[in-house]
Simulated assay, not measured.
Amino acid sequence: MKTIKLSIFTFILSFFCVSLLNAQMAEKEILTSTEITVKPGQNAQFIEGVKKWKSCYLENNGQAKWNMWHRQQGEGNLYVMAGMDPNWASMDKEDNAESACYVILLNLILPHIENVNSRIAQSMPEFSRSFTENANYIRVKYFDVHKGYAFEQVIREVSKAIKEKEGDFRGLWFEFELGGPNTPDFMLAEPYEKYADMDLVRDSPATIYTNKVGEEKAAELWEVWFDTLENSWAYTYKLNQEISN
């Protein structure tokens, strides 16, 4: 796993310019996800700073779109900014509105940030549904594996079974390419309009696959799964529309 090293200034500026998650995942794209930990007791100041930056950016005809997700569990007060780029070349584009609002970033946002952690992943459209535009929540599961090719084999087979039964995939898969030493290898994001949607009772992926191929063949795939999986964890995130664009 490679490590990308960016100063906090360069990082925040560049991240504000990534695009919103596209509705369609027909081709592979680049996902930039950024974890921003806000200092204790300074959430209101951070929010106001981002609002002012957003206002400045729009007044200067900024064209970029971004989403800001607020993590609902875990340690600290953490936000994730997430966006898609069609390719690496798109990151070369200059944004004059960004430069015009640098002072706001410097004075009203950065003083309230405790830590920043950036990651870049590749979308996996062959296993993924489209992103729901009215999604206000996402449930994200992360996976550490030591045999990526074997892990992909599992999600390919199980995702295919889910789509055959339900008509579509359940979430959006990504494979991480750049990030720090604690960056996971894969991520599954499931969008929801409201919390109540998470109460829907559905067969587990394991049950769906087992019903399709039988217990003996399914057991072979589960052996591959447990052989490659090192760790997994999950959070839910709530979209903050006021500081998204």
Rank of each mutant, 00 (worst) to 15 (best):
E216V: 15
A219V: 01
M187T: 07
F186G: 01
G214W: 06
M187F: 03
G180M: 14
E216L: 13
A189F: 06
A218L: 09
N211F: 03
P191H: 04
G180K: 10
P205D: 05
A189S: 15
E193G: 12
G180W: 07
L188V: 08
A218V: 02
P191D: 07
L188F: 11
D197Q: 08
N182I: 04
K194W: 02
V201W: 10
P205E: 08
E177H: 12
E193C: 08
E215Y: 08
G180C: 12
A219S: 15
M198H: 03
I208M: 01
L188S: 03
N182P: 01
G180E: 09
M187P: 01
P181Y: 14
D203A: 12
T207R: 07
T183R: 13
L188H: 08
T183F: 07
Y195A: 08
R202S: 09
N211Y: 10
D197W: 01
R202M: 13
T210E: 14
P191S: 12
L178C: 11
L200P: 00
E190M: 14
A219Q: 05
P184D: 10
E215P: 02
I208S: 04
N182C: 06
E215H: 09
E193K: 15
T210C: 13
M198Y: 00
L178I: 11
T210K: 13
M198R: 07
G214D: 04
K212V: 04
A219D: 02
E215N: 09
N182D: 14
T183Y: 13
P181C: 08
L200W: 03
P181Q: 12
P205A: 03
D197T: 01
Y209F: 13
L178Y: 13
Y192G: 09
D203K: 13
M198L: 01
I208K: 00
P205F: 01
A206I: 03
K212D: 05
I208T: 14
N211V: 09
A206Y: 08
N211I: 12
A189N: 04
G179E: 08
Y209V: 07
Y209E: 04
E215R: 12
G180T: 11
P191A: 05
T210Y: 00
E215C: 02
K212G: 03
Y192Q: 04
L178A: 14
R202N: 08
T210I: 06
Y192C: 07
A206P: 00
T210G: 02
N211K: 15
A218P: 01
L200R: 14
P184M: 10
A196Q: 12
N211D: 15
T183V: 08
D197M: 09
T210N: 11
E215K: 15
S204P: 00
G214T: 06
E216G: 05
M198G: 09
T207A: 09
S204G: 03
K194G: 13
F186P: 02
P191M: 11
K212C: 04
